[in-house]
Amino acid sequence: MIVTVTDTATGPLPPVAVPIMESLAQHRLLTTLQIHELHTPDKTTHWTRHVLRRLHAAELVDAARLPGGLGLWFLTEQGTEAIELIPSRPERRRKQITHAQATGPLRHHTLAVNEVGLALVRAARARGDECGPLAWRHEIAHPIGPAPGRRTPEQLIADALLTYQRNQPDGTTTFHYRFIELDRATMPVDDLAAKLARYATLYHHTLPPTGPTDRPRPLWTHSYAIFPGVLLVLTGRDRPALERRRSNAIALCRTNPQLTATPAVKIAACLLADLIDRGPFAPILKTTHDPARAVGWLDR
């Protein structure tokens, strides 16, 4: 189904306006350059800004300006309602982003998660694979069992879930899934390792059978064909500090009894700067399986 949006003053907006709005709905907050790279890489940034100005004039998107002129774009309430009218859109309605939230401290985390997604989009374009602007979703919650002293179940919330389709030379296709954990060095490293260990809890969490012929199986199998790997991406400090933090987090994970008993939970860690500059297929990751060897994200 072809959907168009219209600026009442100047008529229909360019067709790319709808994909841009879909990305803003899914990713909450994007810079001008992120939007340009996702949706109009074959145009000039001037053209991208022109489209965004028209969306702003139509009151479908709003912008926040930070020191240095960085533009941060997000949907207005009217824009959110327009996107929700797309019948094929599976995504649930997101909480409205306000101007204060767009300029608040959490923007750094959101924009960094989107940079992770962009790095995979670049790699897919260069290799003839599939990883588009909607290939990752933020804050994916998973129940992992009863919380001590609470009535509601405990949840593990991944910062994002990313899907990557690799097209092989022989015509076959493989799908790769990753839970993204974006660490800006704002929590103690042992707390970071403890969160990573909760993926082992998710792997084993099983719902009781609902009937006499129902066999219990882990809850994650209802959502995923295979258990996604965990990609830890570190940023927010200088390189020596981040490399120490990565080494410490991996060392703590390697001694965690939950993780050592669950080898199916595969954890790899890289620096965001390396992911952006060198791409995910370069040997930029260290894994809990073999931390002495740097590997690409799909290396065995």
Rank of each mutant, 00 (worst) to 15 (best):
H56W: 10
L52W: 04
I86N: 04
L66N: 00
E59S: 15
L66K: 00
G79L: 03
L66D: 04
E59H: 15
R54N: 06
A82L: 04
L52M: 12
W73Q: 05
G68L: 01
H50F: 14
E81M: 08
A57W: 13
P87D: 02
G79A: 13
L66G: 01
W73D: 02
L72I: 04
V61L: 09
L75E: 08
R49C: 13
D62Q: 13
P87S: 05
L55C: 08
Q78T: 13
W47N: 12
L66V: 12
P67V: 12
E77L: 03
R53P: 09
L75W: 06
G79F: 00
E84R: 12
A63K: 11
T76Q: 00
L55T: 05
A82W: 00
A82Y: 02
L60R: 03
D62I: 09
I86D: 06
E84K: 10
G71D: 05
D62V: 04
L85W: 01
R53F: 15
P67F: 11
L75Q: 06
P87G: 02
E84P: 02
W73C: 03
H56R: 15
T80G: 12
L85T: 12
H56Q: 13
V51I: 14
A82N: 05
G68P: 07
A63G: 05
W47K: 13
A58T: 10
L70P: 05
A82C: 01
L70T: 13
R49W: 14
A57E: 14
I83L: 04
T80D: 12
L55P: 10
F74D: 00
E59L: 09
T80A: 14
H56V: 03
Q78D: 11
R53T: 13
L55N: 00
L60C: 03
T48S: 15
V51N: 09
I86T: 01
A64Y: 07
T48K: 06
G71S: 12
S88F: 06
E81K: 14
T80N: 08
E84I: 03
E84T: 13
I86M: 07
E59D: 14
E59T: 15
G68T: 04
E84V: 05
L66P: 00
H50G: 15
S88K: 07
Q78M: 07
E81L: 07
E77V: 11
L70G: 04
V51P: 06
I86C: 02
H50I: 15
T76E: 07
P67L: 11
R53Y: 09
L52K: 02
G71P: 00
A57C: 11
G69F: 08
E81H: 06
A64E: 12
